[in-house]
Nucleic acid binder design. Structure first.
Length: 595
RNA sequence: GGUCUCGUAGUUCAAUGGAUAGAAUAGGAGUUUCCUAAACUCUAGAUACAGGUUCGAUCCCUGUCGAGACCA
């Protein structure tokens, strides 16, 4: 359905066509929401038009305004021209009609199917350490963009590539073998991913110790690093793994299973799920055939030592290695292979990677290579790049113990939710189960909103000293607004009021303001989807909740001055609640009926 | 050294090239016989610097300074 701004654009284009016989496309006309200090609802910016239509902005504005009102009597009631701006007033009837058509539509905002298939790859953890705050940003972004793209009418699959092989895993394995004495997550009552992560840390401690010993025995720094026994053991273990040595494979499976158990618990908490999980241990050999193909097509070339490269200097990048001289592949080779694999398996039109911005260069290269190889959909590889989550002191560093652990922060958020709720004392009559559920919804709502309200590409700062707020531009603020609305509907005795038609013909400013914001919801979803930016939804839903709270504070709903006003305000409340719930769901955030 | 990203109130974030740069938080002052005060109202406070393009620049271009990432 065409929204009001698009309507104004096409009406203006038609009017210009009619008045001046000048072809202007609707999309080239700029229409904004009118600033509150001026009269009107929407503003046509005239400056850009006067080059083609040789008129003064005032004359053009007046002629265009007159024409628009004459020919769209049901839509516009009035206009004024100030400098180069044509301010149009939209009739209350239009808004009331919009409200009647949509107020009880639970699916309001869901776009018509586009027929497009999109894959979103995100999360992609390593199996040697537990998740931290940065991973949460990744997971929330990936989940949210998946839901947003669905809402915008696409068929979306989410996928995850688990980095389950390589030297880092071997390190944890060696440390466990040497120091664990057979301990398990069960025997130590430790969550599996933390358990394995502890041995990764243990490995590094031991490695440092050995380096220090070797150095004091006269080794150079470099030689010490190479010859430390634990490092040599880890490297040997990786070779054994590649050779398929049974006891190594068994240990590897056992330790990965512990990690997966831990991850599953966290994923369940935060609501992450995937349609398809790839394991690098299965995919790391992909792409080898594409190297051959690339050589045949002369996309790649071979150096004298036998290594295979691609020359991207024409595209402003460097030369990139795609196969080592010993025949082993590099990271990007398997990424190319996996991109082709996803394409084959799912027939996707767009391939989105949610990966941190330290890999910007990698994805530029990946896209270029795929394009040059002529892989289908290579043009629609999109790197949804996001900035680091930093502490006030700078980057989180595991070596300095400044990593904010995902499980810890989730637990802390829930505890804050509990504490604040108890202080307010509004939850009498809740069972213990309901309370636990509420703290979960509030704690995760605050955390998710905090991480999603910022544009992905910007790095963000998290200050653990000042815990995440529950007031202002936050998840709980919006959840609270929703709970208030539900409370209204619990109180009204006569449900049939909601099925009655709206009789009012005039809207108060706050009533109209709310309807106007609601009308923009589908456009907001569309914008978030095309820009791959959940923060657009966060900002949108916040402004909706904020405006509703003003409306709620100033106007009485259940005790409205007339029956008609009561009915229309109930309709407004209902659709506001629906939109808040839908928009929050796009961020992966649940809303409580009471809080 | 090369490439890329970012620089907006004390702090954390907004602003398809459009009007007097919005919020939140911290600060100051208020609002509760009536739908949930996790709310609402008022107040004070910012575009790193210098050029350029444009009717108009926080946004585009160039340079400087500052923060970060990647590649050696």
């Amino acid at each position: 359905m065409e929204n009001i701004i698009d309507k104004i654009k096409s009406a203006s284009a038609a009017a210009i066509n009619n008045l001046y016989q000048t072809q202007i496309e609707a999309k080239d006309i700029s229409v904004n929401v009118t600033k509150p200090e001026f009269t009107g609802d929407y503003t046509v910016v005239l400056f850009s038009l006067i080059k083609q239509i040789k008129k003064s902005p005032e004359a053009l504005g007046n002629e265009l305004g007159t024409f628009l009102i004459e020919n769209n009597k049901e839509l516009f009631t009035d206009f004024n021209v100030i400098k180069g701006f044509l301010n149009l007033s939209v009739s209350d009837n239009f808004w009331i009609g919009f409200l009647e058509n949509n107020s009880s539509d639970k699916n309001f905002g869901k776009a018509m199917p586009t027929g497009k298939k999109i894959m979103v790859e995100y999360s992609s953890p390593n199996t040697n350490k537990p998740l931290h705050l940065g991973h949460l940003r990744n997971n929330f972004l990936g989940y949210s963009i998946t839901e947003i793209l669905k809402e915008a009418g696409n068929e979306v699959y989410s996928s995850c590539v688990v980095n389950d092989r390589g030297i880092h895993i071997s390190k944890s394995m060696i440390a466990w073998q040497q120091f664990a004495n057979g301990a398990t997550p069960q025997s130590t009552k430790t969550k599996g991913d933390h358990f394995v992560g502890d041995y990764y840390v243990k490995f590094n401690d031991e490695y440092k110790k050995e380096i220090a010993q070797l150095k004091s025995a006269g080794f150079s720094e470099e030689d010490a690093e190479k010859n430390a026994p634990v490092m040599k053991a880890a490297q040997q273990m990786l070779l054994d793994w590649e050779a398929g040595k049974p006891e190594v494979i068994d240990l590897w499976k056992k330790m990965n299973a512990w990690v997966y158990e831990g991850f599953d618990e966290t994923y369940k908490q935060i609501g992450t799920r995937f349609d398809k999980v790839y394991y690098e241990s299965n995919t790391y050999l992909l792409g080898k055939d594409l190297v051959e193909e690339g050589l045949m097509k002369n996309v790649f070339y071979q150096k004298e030592d036998g290594s295979v490269w691609i020359d991207l200097t024409q595209d402003g990048l460097d030369e990139k290695l795609v196969r080592r001289k010993d025949g082993t592949s590099v990271y990007i080779t398997q990424d190319i292979g996996l991109a082709a694999q996803k394409q084959k398996e799912f027939g996707i039109d767009e391939n989105i990677y949610v990966v941190g911005d330290e890999q910007n260069y990698h994805f530029k290269v990946l896209k270029l290579i795929c394009q040059k190889l002529g892989l289908p959909a290579a043009d629609y590889i999109y790197h949804l790049s996001y900035g680091m989550v930093e502490l006030p002191s700078g980057k989180m560093k595991s070596r300095e113990g400044t990593v904010v652990d995902a499980d810890d922060i989730i637990l802390e958020m829930k505890n804050i939710a509990r504490q604040k709720t108890e202080e307010l004392g509004k939850v009498s009559g809740f069972s213990e189960d309901e309370l636990v559920r509420l703290y979960h919804v509030l704690g995760l709502g605050a955390l998710k909103f905090f991480l999603l309200r910022v544009q992905p590409k910007k790095k963000m700062i998290f200050n653990p000293e000042e815990s995440i707020d529950f007031h202002g531009f936050t998840g709980p603020f919006i959840q609270y607004t929703y709970a208030r609305i539900q409370s209204i509907f619990r109180k009204i005795s006569d449900e049939s009021l909601l099925r009655q038609g709206v009789q009012t013909t005039n809207l108060l400013p706050l009533e109209k303001e709310l309807i106007k914001i609601i009308e923009q919801y589908p456009a907001a979803v569309n914008e978030a989807a095309t820009e791959h930016d959940p923060s657009k939804i966060a900002n949108y839903v916040y402004s909706l909740a904020k405006t509703f709270n003003q409306f709620y504070a100033e106007l009485s709903i259940t005790n409205a001055e007339s029956e008609d006003k009561k009915i229309i305000r109930l309709h407004i409340s209902e659709i506001t609640g629906n939109v808040i719930k839908r928009a929050m769901a796009l961020l992966g955030i649940d809303v409580p009926e009471r809080m």
